[in-house]
Design a protein around this nucleic acid. Sequence first.
DNA 1: AATACATATGACAGGGGTGTCATATGCCTA
DNA 2: TAGGCATATGACACCCCTGTCATATGTATT
Lengths: 200, 200
Amino acid sequence: MPKQTFYNLEKDKKDRLIEACLEEFSSYTFTDSSINRIIKNSDISRGSFYQYFENKEDCYMEILGMIAKEKYELFKDVVSDESHGVFDDYLNMLKQVRVWMEAQPRYYKIGLLMQKDDSDFIRKLNEKNPSMNDYFIYLIKKDQDKGFIRKDIDPYLLSEVLTSTSQKILLELFENKEYDLMIEKSKQIIHLLQNGTKVL
Amino acid sequence: MPKQTFYNLEKDKKDRLIEACLEEFSSYTFTDSSINRIIKNSDISRGSFYQYFENKEDCYMEILGMIAKEKYELFKDVVSDESHGVFDDYLNMLKQVRVWMEAQPRYYKIGLLMQKDDSDFIRKLNEKNPSMNDYFIYLIKKDQDKGFIRKDIDPYLLSEVLTSTSQKILLELFENKEYDLMIEKSKQIIHLLQNGTKVL
DNA sequence: AATACATATGACAGGGGTGTCATATGCCTA
DNA sequence: TAGGCATATGACACCCCTGTCATATGTATT
C-alpha cells in the first residue's frame, strides 16, 4: 500500500505522477517499466517517489486499484437486462469492452501487457482475477435449461471457445478499431457456433 | 550471420555455447535474455562471444535457424496423407505438434516466448512466419468443394476459430502434458463446430 | 627461429536500473 | 523564536547490461 504521503500530495503533483505512471505502465510490461522514466516524466525526485511508494510493485498496485475503481464507476449503472442467452451476452460484452477501450485505451493496454508478463508478481495478480469463463459457463448452463443449447454440450468447452475467439476479436478491435466489422464478425461466429458447419 | 569463427569452433565448446543459448532463450524473452548469462553458463569469455556473433540478434537468429533445421529433419518424412478434411487435419496437426513438443520442449518454449516479445526485432520475425491460418483456409475451401462444409461459411472465419482454439489447447498441452485429454477436448470442439449448439 | 594469422581474453567505457540516506526545506506549534 | 515534524532531494552504493579493444596465446608456414 502507498504511504500516507502519497494521499496527502497536492493535486497537481499527484496528477503528474499518476499520468506518468499510466504512460509508463501502458507502454511497458511491469517488468520492463522503469521508475527512472516515471520520475523523469513527472518531474519528481527519486527520493520523493520512495516517500510515496514502497517500490515499483506498490506503485503498480495503486494504479491497478485506480483503474478498477474507474471501471466500476463507468459500469455500475449498466444493470444487465435479463439475459437473452449467452450469445446475446457475448455481443453485449463486446459492446461494453469497446466502451471501456475507447474511454480508457491506456487502461486496456495495461491489461494486455499484464498478460505478456511472466514475472511472479504479475502471474499471481493474473491468477486472482477470475476470467469471463466462469460467467459464460453459468450462462450456458442456463441456456441449456431453457432449451436453447443442446444438453450434450459441455458448458466449459463452449465457454472456452467463446473466450478464446472473443480475445482475438478484442485484440483486433483494439488494434484497428473497426467496431462494426468486429460486431459483424462476432455475429458470424455465433451463427457458426449455433448452426455448425455440416451440410444438412 | 555468425562469423566463420563460430563454425570453426571445436565441438565441445560449440555445444556448450549452444546449450547455454537454448537455456537462455527458452527461459527469457529475446529482449530479456542476456549475453552475460550465456557466457557465464557456457564458460566462454565475453570477447570470444563477440568473435562468434555480431551481437545478440545474430546469435538468436543462428539458434532459430538450428531449430528450423531440426524441425525439418524431424518431419520431412511425415508425408501428409491425402487430407480427410480440415477437422481431421486439425487433429493431425495436434499430434504432430505434440511430437515436436515432447522431442524439443525448449524449442517450443522459445516459440511461445517469441509471441510475448514486443520488440521490433521479434515483431518483424513473427510477421515473416505465415501462421497455420493460411493452410486451414485452403483446406476449408477444399472441404466446401467436396460438400463437407456449408458454402455460406466464411473460410477465413472458421480458420480463425480453429487457430484460436488450437492455440489454447496447445498451451494447455504444453503446460500439463495430458495428451489424451487434449485430443478428447479437440474432438469435442470439432463435434461442436460441426453440429452447432442448436437444439433441433 | 621468425613471421603471420586465428583465436581468446577480460578490463573498460558507457548505458540503464533500484533503493537508501544524510541533508535541506517548509510548516506548524509551543 | 525555537523546536519538532512532514516532506523533498539528489548523490551514492550497488546491481545489471552491451559492445570494444589492446593484449595474450596458440598454431601454421616460411
